[in-house]
Nucleic acid binder design. Sequence first.
DNA 1: GCAAAAGTGTTACCGGTACACCCATGC
DNA 2: GCATGGGTGTACCGGTAACACTTTTGC
Lengths: 248, 248
Amino acid sequence: MISHKIVPNVSVDCVIFGFDFEKLNVLLVDRELKDERTGKVLISDHTLTGYHIYDDEDLDTAAYRILKELTGLDNLFLEQFAAFGQLDRVSSEKDQLWLKHINKGFADRIITVGYLALIDNTQVTLKLSEKNVQWYPVNEVKNMEMAFDHKYIFYKALEALQKKVKVEPIAFELLPDYFTLSQLQKLYEALLGASFDKRNFRKKISQMHYVIPLKKKQKGVPHKPAQYYLFSREVYEKTKKNRISFIV
Amino acid sequence: MISHKIVPNVSVDCVIFGFDFEKLNVLLVDRELKDERTGKVLISDHTLTGYHIYDDEDLDTAAYRILKELTGLDNLFLEQFAAFGQLDRVSSEKDQLWLKHINKGFADRIITVGYLALIDNTQVTLKLSEKNVQWYPVNEVKNMEMAFDHKYIFYKALEALQKKVKVEPIAFELLPDYFTLSQLQKLYEALLGASFDKRNFRKKISQMHYVIPLKKKQKGVPHKPAQYYLFSREVYEKTKKNRISFIV
DNA sequence: GCAAAAGTGTTACCGGTACACCCATGC
DNA sequence: GCATGGGTGTACCGGTAACACTTTTGC
């Protein structure tokens, strides 16, 4: 393996969202530091999944690399949403302690580029078992202790996601290839913190010709089995209309 | 004056848009390099207005600084829109020549954070006369020679602006404090590359209660004088409704 | 047969679009 | 008085919102 040189002042951090058919989740790293002699826990909190970029890779490439290392998946939805460079983003006491501990000689002025990733939660959960990484419900993040400015970055990512989901068909990235309309509705409700009328929701979806009903139906459920649907990006790209008007 | 240390791998670039009541413009630096002996022009093109960040300033602060140095104005609309870190963004032959010439010892791997700035064009034009900086119509950029990846960054900024203007009341940042509805309409048409029906446009605006008619009217124009209007951010913030629905 | 979620239609209202003429001013 | 842009109303259409019952399955 080639050893890479890192770019000292730049990192990427990925905010990875997942959906388990019930609620929206985020993938976080459990960070723990114990005193070597006493065993006393000095730090116990959470970080986003990020790392420095190498001097021979693009920002996007770095983000994909981190994601691949973590989940084993590629071809995920991944998109930059902001850069963060506050002077004090790494300067809290515990974060300084941590940086000293890992001792990789990172600069103390680090600009990080935030990436938003969307994953079908159910696919990934298994592969995480060995790493100190797990899904946490988005709603619980507010009560969690987090490293650096990662809580701030997380909320900016959530904001960006909520904004984007209203005007682009990216919600589908959080669902498996086949899904039911109820699952889709639950997802939109979880994303937007709203609730929709079932009939109106379905009417709306039926106008999106890129959400295509399959022959397949649910099996083994103790109620009327639901129809499965498929999202076709191809049909979406072909049929999307350019809105020229504005709403403010 | 204190001498600052720069962060070697990070810069900001501002894409500054202005509107002259006719068309959308962008503020660009004229870059020229002549051979010292022969006087032959080696480089003659344009750059965005950007610079490295100092190690004691935030990204936003750096962008404000650059803007202030250039236009003499602060309190401008300024917002990050993306970060750029392609490996080859600085590696073209003429850009290498240029970097060697200015010889500031910059790293050759530079990640830049793009900022979008909106200015009332008419206010600024005067102050630029001494600098090698001027307004260029947005429509002409496609035919212009530009440094580094600045053309790419410019188009990304334009895209971001067009997207944003559809859902947030930022167009007003490009107009003076008082403006007529025709000016506003022309602005939206220039921004979105569309044209609107006058009556429908005015109906739409009249529903935006944060666009407030003044007592003042135009004077000295050879036609019926137009009413002046004012944008009130305060009223906007108070009355804006949170759209919970989605359109894709 | 009962619990649980799937699926389906109608009406009322509002915002968007299309369209043509008179008005106030400077010269 | 004429050229120039300012300003106004109405009719149709399509999308959004509110609302309740029947269907299919597993147990």
